[in-house]
Every structure is written in C-alpha cells, then in structure tokens.
C-alpha cells in the first residue's frame, strides 16, 4: 500500500551575537527517488534570502545561498507532500563506491574481530538482517553520547551512540561482509528529530533497513539524502563571520494523509 505523507521540518539557528557573510548549504528537501515521488515541496528562509537548488552526485538536492548582512538568527522550514510507493521501485545498478569503506565507516581491528565472531548466514538478505540484529543488540542507544564527528570505530568502542552511529557501524560491517550499502537520512513517520538509517542493495533494489530500530523500513520512511556516510550528505552546513555561539532547535513532523 502506498502512502501519502505530509512533512514539515523546522530548524532554528540562534546566534549569541550578530554574524555576517553567512554561506550555507542545506539538504533539507527530499528528492524524487525510485519509490518516492515528490508531489510538492518548498523551503522558507528567515531572514528571507534567495537560494538556488542544485543536485549533487548522489542525487540529493542542495539549497545554496548566503546572507551578507548582520543577522542573529537563521530559520528554515521545509514542507511538502510525498507519495511513497514501494511498488514503484525499479531495478538499478549499484555504484561501486557503496562497496568500499569511507571516512566514517572505516573498520578498526576491534570491529573486524567482532564481525569474525558472528555466525552469519550466506544469503544476502538474511545476512543484511542478521547484521542489523547484531548491531542493535550490541549497541546501546544513548542520546547525546556521540557527536557529528564520531566514527563507526569510535562509537563501537564506546558501545553506545545515536542513529547515525548505528548506521555507520552497520555500513562498516555490511561492506566488509560483501554487501553494497549506503547511508540515508530523512524523516520517518512521526514527530521529533531527523533520523538516519541504511539501504542495502539486494536483488537490484535499494532496500531500507534501520539498525537503530532493528527493522526493515516501510513506506513511512521519507528519504532526504543518500551518501556513503554522514559526511557525504549533512542536512545543513554553514560558515559565517562573527564571534558568536550557535544554538539549534529542530522539529519535524511526518503524518499520513488518508
């Protein structure tokens, strides 16, 4: 059954003092993907500045611009409606880059050793599932325990992390075990913060799997960006001038329309 999803994604950046020459790259609009059709989508910025939209090499949408004048906040709000329909997915070729380790998903001896202790099935689909279970069981979800710079090896060593870390560890192991796998960020149906999960290339289809929640994804998962790991597709990046601290508030909601 396909789902029609409506989403809002709000980010509020507040600066402790005015900043200038603020250049940004956002990736906070979902693109059309096999099985995911954007019906309408828009982005509002405050202060209001023009931005341009580009597509990067992974097919993600980039919203790019700059605020020259002093400002003490930067809010952006994405909203839209999307039809997710797994029946519309098509067989695709897999880029070889999703078979290789990347910065965040590099193996450590500790990770390799642990992988070698697991009794894993041969069949790729069963293998993909067994790894998700293993990662989910091994790692403790602790909000705020890691940061955006934490690698799979570091999070594994600590034994805890957030969705980004679950995804990175899963990718490191899956690629080493011979699967092609990629990082996905986006919004699952519900409310709260954005989420990260993985896709594994099985029988020519990119198939979603969520190691944090230990489940295959369904049509309630709205995909925003794809990459080898977090570093390829952060939902926002910015640089500015000014002696200011920055605080961020995020709120998202994805609901199903009947």
């Amino acid at each position: 059954m396909s789902r029609l999803l409506h989403f809002t994604y709000d980010i509020q950046l507040a600066f402790s003092a005015p900043v200038v020459q603020h250049a940004f790259v956002l990736r906070c609009l979902p693109p059309d993907l096999p099985g995911q059709q954007i019906l309408d989508a828009g982005l509002t910025l405050d202060p209001s500045v023009p931005f341009s939209i580009q597509r990067d090499n992974f097919g993600n949408l980039l919203e790019v611009g700059q605020l020259e004048d002093p400002h003490d906040h930067f809010w952006y709000r994405a909203r839209g409606s999307v039809r997710v329909d797994f029946a519309q997915r098509q067989l695709v070729r897999c880029s070889p880059i999703f078979r290789q380790p990347s910065f965040y998903t590099r193996l450590s001896p500790e990770l390799t050793d642990w992988l070698n202790t697991l009794a894993l099935p041969q069949n790729p689909r069963d293998l993909a599932w067994a790894l998700a279970q293993a990662v989910h069981d091994r790692l403790e979800y602790v909000a705020g325990s890691t940061g955006v710079a934490t690698t799979a090896a570091q999070a594994f060593h600590a034994g805890k992390g957030v969705c980004q870390d679950f995804a990175h560890i899963y990718l490191a192991l899956a690629r080493q075990a011979g699967l092609a796998a990629r990082y996905v960020n986006g919004l699952p149906q519900g409310e709260g913060a954005s989420h990260a999960w993985c896709e594994v290339w099985l029988d020519g289809l990119w198939t979603g799997i969520d190691p944090t929640r230990c489940r295959w994804t369904d049509e309630g998962y709205l995909r925003f960006n794809i990459g080898r790991d977090f570093g390829d597709c952060p939902m926002e990046r910015g640089v500015f001038r000014g002696p200011a601290d920055q605080t961020q508030t995020v709120f998202m909601r994805v609901s199903q329309q009947q």
Binding site: D56, N57, F58, P96, I97, R99, Q100, D232
Partner: peptide, 24 residues
C-alpha cells in the same frame, strides 16, 4: 574498472578520491 584493468578498491579506497566530484 568495469573492464577489470584497474581494481575498484585502488580507486575508491584512495584518500585522494573525492566522491564530491562524481559525475562532474
């Protein structure tokens, strides 16, 4: 790479390979 002249991992594991340049 598809023709097997250079192994995939020699390219994609190289620190000098930048995925940001794919397709450009």
């Amino acid at each position: 790479l598809a023709d097997g002249i250079v192994p995939e991992d020699f390219v994609y594991r190289s620190p000098g390979y930048l995925p940001q340049c794919e397709g450009i």
